[in-house]
Write a protein that binds this DNA or RNA. Structure first.
Lengths: 414, 414
DNA sequence: TTGTAGGCGAGTCGCCGACAA
DNA sequence: TTGTCGGCGACTCGCCTACAA
């Protein structure tokens, strides 16, 4: 196998019994690192739980990663409802070996043949079938529950960081929080850092504390990392330290146009039809089907935990003019809430996906300056601000975990 | 847009009215260059003609480009026959902007609702529906007909060609045939070459004739090309000169494992189902559908000109033990024929694709040394050697164009 | 606290024949 | 005829500090 010359990059997982060429080695992706790369808002449902699958949202993700709108030629699948109640049989984390893009593979098993009706019944609270309604309401929605908020930092690369002229300037706090402490009796203090990426490749850097004024720098090894990962100014790099005190690092690319070309393999239409047909076939036969969820390709969370969906539909009384808050990701991988108002309730695609609830809320945002926020959201994405009773934030959505310091979220404006 | 530093690469097609970001600029791919990159055996059917589409072969191509076998979970589409007679509405040439992989986009319009029956009738010669049987038989199969065999050369890159230590050693014949003549009064004779690739990017090279003994070399600019295209020893580069005396260049990568990762967008199953469902939907509605044909990803020519198909089925009396010849591509982009024997006739997949004719001939080859030739072919791929009448080659398949010099094909062994 | 730039050394790139296959 | 190598410039890479934002 040919690889570009890259001396500092070596796989630490050596296939003990590499029996044949066709065998794709199964690597276990580090979950913490995967989530760090995916961002603070991404929360995968757990295997073994029930989820609601939205083919419409799935189709949206494919359209986004191909940068091509559905052109309306996609046929209807009369037997495919707009949502499918499924048992999430399996979740596997992946990362593209070329781009390091993170994605998850989920195996879904439809549990009822006519889910559209079932879910309507469910949302009307008349009957919950085999599910325990109270249990669903009691259950933790699990915001951040599987992210023990390990030591973590993320920096957007500057022009200097990515130029061939020098190394990487480490933010002071980051170096002190994440890196092993330097021996300050040395002149200058320096050490060798060893970090692994999502593919378990090892990258080594010289970490040195020098300059006037003093600062932390990564020098030797850094440029190999930049060229190896094809990083540019605006992309981000992140370091975390896992429970074994091992250093892990990942990247997040700036929003560039979908790299996924126009796909020379399959036509856009075939892809969209494939999604629908695969789901329809699985639903008709009660057989499992597989989807890929690509959290950074589009904000299309098309596999929603049943508890989250049900709580939102059960609890939130939606009305025109209603105020709500919603989480967004900040530049430096934090979260903050923005306030908005519901300006309309309508199907996104009334013809093909009637009454689907997928992004059926039209919204306006208080701070228009930030500009590019979505003008359509789904009910389970928002936290209603119930007027006139002032709940901030609603106890329902209060996370069990301490709020990020410095986050302006605790101040609520009406 | 970010691009790796690559000074010698610049697009010459400037969008005259680049109205907006989402607009994908339509570039006209040079047909000669595309065919040179695709190889001597690739011959696309012409737009406006009738073709036979094999969903089974299409599925095979997808499996090959994903390096994953169909796992048998793909449902049957009872309404989708194993072959579909279509009008080829449109053919567009493309090249992957990242890898330069060539592929063709075809829009197919099914012309009969129950093609399986129709084609069976057709092959039984009882009725030809609206087609003129004699016209089909008379028509030129068109081997190489759209390739006016322009000045062309192709070289597999050596370790020296791709190392950073030096430039590119140009085969003497190639330089004399393709490049503009040097001014040999100079000491040493040298010139600047300008060549365009499939994307109309301009590459410039210093072409110099020096050394002892004298030889043609490309020096300055060459290493940028190698790194820009990510070429390695074993890959090939080819130059052609078009009718306007302009120099064009392309690449052909060595057979490496399918770069198309495991596709983080769509599951393998969804892709296969998508192919079938798209074709089935198009056939049921008499609406067009789109396929991508990727000639170098797999030898799966799943869109066959009707005339070619019909001639093969009508003319070739297939029997066990029958001798035949078949064209293969040689290392240096030439062609040669290999002899073989039919050892079996059976469906490749009797369950899902019964009686499909797709690669239903099991074959053995005379020269087993070359090893990795396919053990299953379709009837329209072979030239029968009718015994005891010795035809060499059968006049039926004799190309109108002069055979390549130095090709050993005219000598026939029984 | 940290982004950028000038200064410079060491190392690679890349142009040149020689030589042999 | 052409693939590889030793020789050797020249130039980029990359480590350092200075200086400002």
């Amino acid at each position: 196998m040919k690889t570009p010359a890259n001396a500092a990059c070596a796989s630490s997982v050596t296939a003990a019994s590499n029996s044949g060429e066709g065998v794709v080695e199964k690597k276990m992706i580090n979950s913490e690192l995967w989530h760090a790369c995916a961002g603070p808002l991404v929360n995968l449902p757990a295997a073994g739980t029930h989820v609601v699958y939205f083919p419409q949202g799935h189709s949206e993700q494919v359209a986004a990663s191909m940068k091509k709108d559905v052109d309306g030629q996609i046929p209807n699948y009369p037997n495919l409802p707009s949502k499918l109640l499924c048992l999430l049989h399996n979740v596997t984390l992946h990362a593209d070996p070329e781009t390091d893009e993170v994605y998850a593979q989920m195996t879904l098993l439809p549990v009822l043949s006519n889910m559209h009706c079932a879910l309507r019944v469910l949302s009307n609270q008349t009957k919950l079938l085999e599910f325990d309604k109270d249990a669903l309401l009691r259950s933790d929605i699990g915001l951040k529950s599987n992210k023990p908020q390990t030591e973590f930092f993320c920096k957007t690369l500057t022009a200097s960081d990515t130029s061939t002229h020098g190394g990487f300037s480490v933010p002071r706090r980051a170096a002190e929080k994440i890196f092993p402490p330097l021996d300050f009796s040395m002149q200058p203090p320096a050490q060798e850092l060893v970090a692994r990426d999502l593919h378990d490749n090892v990258w080594t850097f010289r970490h040195i504390y020098r300059g006037q004024p003093k600062r932390h720098l990564l020098t030797t090894g850094w440029s190999l990392f930049v060229s190896g990962k094809r990083l540019f100014a605006g992309d981000s790099v992140l370091f975390i330290r896992d429970e074994k005190q091992q250093l892990l690092l990942g990247i997040r690319r700036a929003n560039r146009q979908p790299t996924n070309l126009s796909s020379s393999v399959l036509s856009s239409d075939s892809m969209h039809i494939g999604i629908l047909a695969a789901a329809a076939h699985a639903a008709a036969n009660n057989s499992p089907f597989t989807v890929f969820y690509n959290p950074r390709a589009s904000p299309s969370e098309f596999v929603v935990p049943l508890a989250k969906y049900y709580k939102a539909v059960y609890s939130n009384q939606i009305s025109l003019g209603m105020r709500f808050r919603m989480m967004f990701e900040t530049e430096e991988s934090g979260t903050r809430r923005y306030m908005g108002t519901i300006t309309g309730i309508s199907d996104l695609d009334p013809v093909r996906w009637n009454n689907s609830q997928w992004r059926n809320l039209q919204v306006g945002w208080d701070e228009s300056t930030a500009g590019e926020r979505r003008n359509r959201v789904s009910i389970w994405e928002i936290e209603p601000v119930t007027a006139p009773f002032f709940l901030c934030p609603p106890p329902f959505f209060r996370s069990k975990h301490p709020r990020q310091p410095g986050m302006p979220g605790t101040r609520c404006a009406i």
